[in-house]
Design a protein around this nucleic acid. Structure first.
Lengths: 153, 153
DNA sequence: TTAGGTGCAAATTCTTTGCACCCTG
DNA sequence: CAGGGTGCAAAGAATTTGCACCTAA
């Protein structure tokens, strides 16, 4: 799937409407347009790009509404963030081929190794996107420490 | 490997010394301590954590030197950055299980699908880190557009 | 000696927040 | 009509930059 199909968008909008209603939040024009902007892009836009896209249809929207709405959509589970959501850049001196485990609770990050993963062959569809240089597996979960502590950080 | 072994650190420091010399840059006390801090941590520290660690041994180091040095180490290829390297948070409305291709040149990001990847079984060593919730493959490379254009963005 | 490196502080950039008005339900 | 939502502007964080002094080579 290179493009987001009309069907996908319809489905996502429907899901949005329902989730919005269930959460008891108001369904405003802004929220709808902001979600639509993310839902219809095959790329994964950053805040600025979403803002510019929404502005075309709704010139008075403010940047901070976009920030707030994206945060809210994330809470509702309607969208996800890529890259360290609300986190800082991290540095890694391990240059050998490895993969990461990241604790979604406390941010702990550990390397692990797997020959099997290193040798993964990618599906052909990837060729239509570009030339592959590296492949890394990112595992998210709860680290042992956080699991013991239960919910709180 | 849970810990970074003494051997690993030695090796990384040696590599650092050599790369530093080859690049014609000066081997300052600050650079050495900053690299050591990243090289010896099994977690992947952010700028602040590196700064705090280095300060213990070198209380006069400044935060911006840490920023500059980490950027320089990255250029030399001695360390890597995790998460949005110099990039903003991105948003994703695709909630089905998918994987990412990211262009290291222009930042383009595309989803791709693979049953095989979805079913990957993790090595046992991961169990000693924590409980897995999701597994995602991140592929880095050059997108077709950038490949055509050659080096420049 | 001397060019590159560092510390400091100010500037940017990205994101969040306080407040008064507006609009959905 | 009421309370949440929005826009604006200002505050906060994170990161970068200009400049004068310092130091490795």
């Amino acid at each position: 799937m290179v493009k987001v199909t009309k069907q996908d968008i319809e489905q996502r909008m429907a899901h949005f409407n329902e989730a919005c209603r269930n959460s008891g939040a108001k369904l405003t024009h802004q929220r709808m347009e902001i979600f639509r902007e993310v839902a219809q892009s095959a790329d994964h836009p950053d805040v600025e790009k979403v803002y510019q896209g929404v502005r075309k249809r709704m010139p008075t929207v403010s940047l901070d509404t976009v920030y707030r709405t994206l945060g809210w959509l994330k809470e509702l589970g309607l969208i996800k963030t890529l890259g360290p959501p609300r986190e800082r850049t991290r540095f890694d001196a391990n240059l050998s081929h490895h993969h990461h485990f990241v604790c979604v609770q406390c941010g702990l990050m550990r390397d692990f190794y797997s020959d099997k993963f290193d040798k993964l062959s990618l599906p052909e569809s990837v060729q239509s996107i570009g030339y592959v240089e590296t492949t890394q597996v990112e595992v998210k979960g709860i680290c042992l420490k956080c699991a013991v502590k239960g919910k709180p950080i």
